[in-house]
Computed example of a mutant assay.
Amino acid sequence: MAEIAIIDYQMGNLRSVQKGFERVGHHAVVTSDPAEIAQASRVVLPGVGAFGDAITELRRRDLVSVIRDIVARGTPMLGICLGLQMLFDVGYEGGEFEGLGILAGKCVRFHLPAEFKVPHMGWNRSHIVRPNALLSDIADNSYFYYVHSYYVVPTDANVIAVQADYGHPFCAMIAKGQLFATQFHPEKSQATGLKLLQNFAEIPVLQGSA
């Protein structure tokens, strides 16, 4: 059984995420096998690309129900970038697409004054709204690395763990139970991002959740 399974659906920065875990001393397996993913102790849903294409690939590979089951039974899961956005009900990138529906809310495009370039790309100060295990020993207002044109708007503001500001405040991280997801890329965020990956790799697994 894999300790950490990184879901491969041909839409993620997979090797960078895997190397991030390796750098903090944890083995992670890149896999598209639903059975291997379902049996992992911890699961990562990365993502780079378009919302609609990503959801289509997850469905084609029979991974949607696997992801929903993982979250429902409390297995620790970490979404990254597009992996955060797809957790919600709907995304509006190039149309309207049904998401995983694990969290209520939507994913929308930045509409900002001309001085703000879209995509939002680079380092941004990130404010901790609600501390959690993933943020252990990470200072408030730390900088993380972002590359995105869309951001999530949760129906329940209580799931927002971190906010950043780009023209206006936006959700940079969610946390609910053992489900965590970041808009920023921890694997590209140097020592602070690696600390977050380490925290995820070492978060306690609830008995019977994997």
Rank of each mutant, 00 (worst) to 15 (best):
P46G: 15
G91W: 03
L14A: 08
V205T: 13
A139G: 11
P131W: 03
Y151V: 05
A175Q: 13
A54V: 03
G49L: 09
I70P: 05
R130D: 09
L82V: 01
H185A: 14
K176L: 03
Q198K: 12
M86Q: 11
Y166R: 05
I4G: 12
Y143H: 13
R60Y: 06
I55H: 08
T182F: 00
G52L: 06
Q39Y: 04
V24L: 02
D62Y: 04
S209H: 10
N13C: 02
V17G: 13
F184H: 14
P113L: 00
K117D: 05
G193N: 04
I138P: 06
A201N: 10
Q178P: 03
G74P: 00
Y92N: 14
P119Q: 05
S126L: 00
Y150R: 02
V64H: 08
Y92C: 14
A157C: 09
G122E: 13
Y143P: 13
H27S: 10
F110H: 12
A40Y: 12
A172N: 03
H148L: 05
H185K: 12
M77V: 11
P34H: 09
H168F: 13
S41P: 00
R125C: 04
F116N: 15
F180Q: 14
A172D: 03
A164H: 02
G83C: 02
L58D: 08
M121G: 04
L14M: 09
H27F: 04
V64W: 09
G25V: 04
N13E: 04
E98G: 11
K195N: 05
V29C: 08
H111D: 15
C107D: 14
K195I: 03
P204N: 04
I4W: 01
K195Q: 13
V205Y: 04
K195H: 00
Y150G: 06
D69V: 07
Q10Y: 14
G122V: 13
E57Q: 13
A175H: 12
F116T: 15
M86F: 03
H168V: 11
A191C: 13
G79Y: 08
G208A: 12
N199I: 09
A50T: 10
I37E: 11
G12W: 02
Q207F: 06
A38R: 06
L84F: 03
A2S: 15
V43H: 03
F180V: 15
G20H: 00
H27G: 06
P204D: 10
L134S: 09
L134D: 11
Q10T: 15
Q10C: 12
M86V: 14
Q163T: 10
Q207E: 11
G79V: 10
D33C: 09
Q178D: 08
I70G: 07
Y146T: 10
L58H: 02
A104T: 09
